[in-house]
């Protein structure tokens, strides 16, 4: 059995479903699927200007894995631009369950049952630096 893919943390998902080239006859040139984690990697590195190590920690993956995701993101976007392809965003291996939280200190993911919604701390390390994984 292959090793399980670790879920990548997403701070926030992309605010679009895709991009379509205009001025080009793109109907039959197809599309590339940009995974949420790839979008996230690109955003952290090239928009938030983080270095790879910082960004990888934020996404909960190793630096090497981050580099791979980032590389894949850039290649897909380059391919879309050069070949006038659409870009579609899809889930991939990012974790976006609605009511899941993540602890920014010990990186565990957890739910907070309804009666305890006021308890805003990590169930493991008691840190209060937690955030909803998907805020949308």
């Amino acid at each position: 059995m292959p090793r399980r893919r670790r879920l990548r943390r997403m701070v926030s998902p992309p605010g679009f479903k895709g991009y379509r080239p205009y001025g080009a006859n793109s109907d039959d040139s197809g599309y590339v699927e940009l995974l949420y984690e790839e979008y996230e990697a690109l955003k952290l590195a090239d928009y938030n200007l983080m270095n790879h190590l910082e960004a990888s920690k934020l996404m909960g993956v190793s630096r090497a894995t981050f580099a791979r995701i980032y590389e894949s993101a850039r290649r897909k976007i380059a391919q879309a631009l050069v070949e006038s392809k659409e870009i579609k965003t899809v889930y991939g291996n990012a974790h976006l369950d609605k009511d899941w939280y993540v602890c920014n200190d010990c990186y565990v993911r957890f739910t907070i049952p309804r009666p305890h919604r006021h308890r805003h701390h990590c169930p493991m390390c008691k840190s209060e630096k937690i955030e909803l994984v998907n805020q949308k």
């Binding site: 879920l7 565990v108 957890f110 049952p113 305890h116 493991m124 390390c125």
Partner: peptide, 26 residues
């Protein structure tokens, strides 16, 4: 079901930990 009965779920993705390590973390 866990959600229905208000049981908190915690996911740890560390590979090499013992039960004792987890208890210590709590």
């Amino acid at each position: 079901l866990l959600d229905k009965f208000n049981i908190q779920m915690v996911i740890i993705q560390d590979d090499d930990v013992t039960v004792e390590d987890v208890i210590r973390k709590i």
